[in-house]
Write a protein that binds this DNA or RNA. Structure first.
Lengths: 333, 333
DNA sequence: TATTAAAATTGAAACGTTTCAATTTTTGGG
DNA sequence: CCCAAAAATTGAAACGTTTCAATTTTAATA
């Protein structure tokens, strides 16, 4: 590997000048030319480790998500990439594997790796210790979920109104008995979506039936159990609002197994992942999150912090969701 | 940030000894204790850049895939993570954004970043220049696709037999007129799957009808157009084998639009992504690829190369696919 | 106890940059 | 053409490790 010294020698200038050139400072035209020629002929590329050692910058950001194969997460990552790659930042991906312990470990790992910043989608809203990281000057931006007692920049969706609009739509189609598959109580987005549900019912003067509110793990079995539970109610709901992707998909699975026709025997509105849900017959009504934008905005805030701009801290962005309305929710009049 | 010098001073030994300790060499029990105490009380963690500068190792591998939001890719990444993370390797993700140019750029980027190795899923099988990378000693392992005239370690699926088993199953259910949505001719996996199709027809003495073979881009519009084309044939096929995920999903979309019932009016067998396809009614027959295993095996080979073991180069692994048979392919007797 | 071999430690050089005080070159006004 | 000011360049120190030849300590043997 060629070094800056080789370039300096060949171009007949000092290493300092080469360094100045590389970092975009003004140098004499004549020298610029010589250096560029030397770099070209030596195929020189600067060594990021040596540079990092001096500058304490790795040009790397860590992205820590609950699970890599989650489509929502990868769409967010695409957004992050879109912003960071043109600036030559690398993205180190870490998965917490849906566990708080995993998250803690990976955070420590990223800190030790000297990333310039971290974008974090927390596994739980209940608990997060980033003091060690924040103290050492590494900025952290939260996505999708806020965490209790944690003052950090964040980009989340307006889950309350996302859920509200879905439930409102269901009500407007004539439903009164609306079940909700709500997520775990310690997850921020789940809380918000439940709030939206409750608020909509309240605004439309529909009495709240506790039996229609089922808390489920945001995963496969959670969805299956919750849907079954709602279906086995003596006075069962006519419509169900399922508040994330796995619970929605698995509700449909049960629906199919029980021979229930979506939009006929039972109405369903889901969350996330529009493209896929539109393949079904009828397509599934869903609340769509702007996942890519979340990534873009988070990356932009992070960059700002990395560059030392701590204005308006903590900056919390709430992005609007979009509602896709289909015949999966039956019109009752 | 504390350095090895601080530790040395506090533990009253030399920096060399601390370094030896950190790298797992034997040191006197007494010193070990003092060093461990010092590290603990100073909260010392070693600086990866300084280390990297000396050792020329970043403990980072690059993963370059066509597109991040592709589920197949992310499952592969999960496998890679499973192997690499326990060894403290970081994973830098790059997306080629489905373009050869993007791939070339990202390869250069990864080389410049001094990654210890690269796992690459090529965007095309036609062309790949990694000489610069290989020459500089960075091992590269290909996944999913081989590239013409490219001697590299690789982990791929046995696409020929994967496709063969699917077509064989379709034949065994009594179909004779079997269409295939084949991928672009320059993609390795597409070629192989077409080979499997042809071989199965041959083995069962079914004449090959060129009109039943449609080459399509492996994306949304490709799938839509191809399916339409097959459906508009005067003597249209009774079953269609769609050879990747997007073409399968979009064939279903057209099917739905045209009011065709899968497994009744037209039979379909797809590729990839079982979980989702099992949600439909009927579930979709598919060839399933062991995506996670691909990642695991690729990471293991890469590690071997990183550690200087170049035995059995180039090592090409072919993993077996699995066939899921459902009523989406009608039994004709 | 003396001697030697083996084991452990030491301290400085090296890795390839950036940075900065000191120096040289260039520029422009008189 | 000279001089001062401005601009550009220089060269060495510093970043925090690893590595290795030289040295010291320990263990083993007679």
């Amino acid at each position: 590997m060629k070094t800056i010294k080789d370039v300096a020698k060949l171009a007949d200038v000092s290493v300092g000048t080469v360094s100045r050139y590389l970092n975009g400072y003004k140098i004499k035209e004549e020298n610029r030319k010589k250096i560029e020629e030397a770099i070209e002929s030596l195929q020189f590329t600067s060594n990021p480790m040596a540079r990092g050692l001096r500058t304490n910058k790795t040009f790397t950001v860590g992205v820590l998500i609950p699970r890599i194969s989650d489509i929502f997460c990868t769409q967010v990552i695409e957004g992050i990439e879109e912003v960071l790659n043109p600036l030559n930042y690398g993205i180190v991906i870490c998965s917490a594997n849906d566990s708080l312990q995993g998250q803690t470990e990976k955070l420590a790992y990223l800190k030790n790796k000297c990333v310039d910043g971290i974008i974090l989608m927390p596994v739980t809203s209940a608990e997060l210790d980033v003091t060690g990281i924040v103290d050492s000057g590494i900025p952290v931006v939260l996505i999708d979920r806020l965490v209790k007692d944690c003052e950090l920049d964040a980009v989340v969706c307006d889950n309350v109104n996302g859920a509200y609009s879905a439930v409102e739509m269901i009500i407007n189609k004539g439903h009164q008995k609306i079940g909700i598959i709500a997520g775990p109580q310690e997850i921020y987005t789940a809380q918000e979506r439940l709030t939206g549900y409750l608020r909509a019912l309240e605004d439309y003067n529909i009495e709240i039936n506790e039996a229609y509110i089922v808390h489920a793990q945001y995963n496969k079995t959670g969805g299956i159990d919750a849907f079954r539970q709602l279906m086995s109610l003596p006075d069962r709901p006519t419509a169900i609002f399922s508040t994330n992707y796995p619970t929605t998909v698995n509700s449909m699975k049960v629906m199919m197994e029980q021979g229930l026709r979506m939009g006929e025997d039972i109405s369903l509105c889901g969350y996330d992942q529009t493209e896929l849900f539109q393949m079904f017959n009828p397509p599934v009504s869903v609340v769509v999150q702007p996942s890519r934008e979340i990534g873009i905005n988070a990356a932009e805030i992070l960059l700002k912090r990395i560059n030392g701009d701590y204005s308006r801290f903590p900056q919390i962005q709430r992005l609007k969701t979009q509602l896709i309305v289909t015949d999966s929710v039956k019109t009752l009049f």
